[in-house]
Amino acid sequence: MAPKQYTVTGMSCEHCAASIREEVSEIPGVSEVVVDVAAKSVTVHGTDLDDARLRGAIVEAGYEVVDTVAV
Rank of each mutant, 00 (worst) to 15 (best):
A39L: 00
D36G: 06
A17L: 09
D51S: 07
M11R: 01
R21D: 06
V8H: 02
V69R: 08
V66Y: 10
A61N: 10
V30Y: 01
G29H: 07
L54D: 02
A17N: 13
A18K: 00
I58W: 09
V69Y: 11
R21E: 15
E22V: 06
V42D: 02
L54G: 02
A38Q: 15
C16S: 08
D50H: 00
Y6K: 09
V34Y: 05
A18W: 07
I20E: 02
E22F: 03
E64R: 00
V33Q: 01
A52I: 13
E32C: 01
V24H: 09
G62H: 03
P3K: 12
V34M: 12
R55G: 07
C13N: 06
P3E: 09
Y6I: 13
H45I: 03
E22I: 10
T7D: 13
A52Q: 14
I27V: 14
S19T: 00
A38W: 14
V34K: 14
A52F: 01
T47L: 07
S19I: 07
V69I: 14
G62N: 00
L49Y: 04
A52C: 04
S31C: 11
V69D: 12
S25V: 08
V69K: 11
V35T: 10
D67H: 01
P28D: 14
V59D: 15
P28C: 04
M1S: 06
G10N: 04
A61Q: 03
P28G: 03
D67N: 02
C13R: 01
V71G: 10
E26Q: 15
G56M: 04
V71Q: 14
C13P: 02
A38C: 12
I58F: 13
A61Y: 03
R55I: 13
D36I: 03
E22Y: 07
R55P: 12
C16K: 04
T9W: 09
E60Y: 12
G29N: 05
E14L: 11
R53F: 08
S41F: 14
V42L: 07
C13Y: 11
A52G: 12
Y6D: 09
K40M: 03
I27F: 05
K40Q: 14
E22R: 15
A2G: 09
Q5K: 15
V42G: 05
G29M: 10
K40T: 00
L54Y: 06
E60P: 03
Y63T: 10
E26R: 15
T7L: 09
K40S: 14
A17M: 11
V65H: 03
Y6P: 08
D50S: 08
S12E: 01
H15K: 14
V30D: 07
T7W: 08
V24T: 10
T47Q: 01
I27W: 08
D48R: 00
T68V: 14
S25M: 15
V35F: 00
R53T: 08
Y6W: 06
V59Q: 15
T47A: 04
E32Y: 06
D36R: 15
G10Q: 02
E64A: 03
S25C: 04
V34P: 05
E64S: 06
H15R: 04
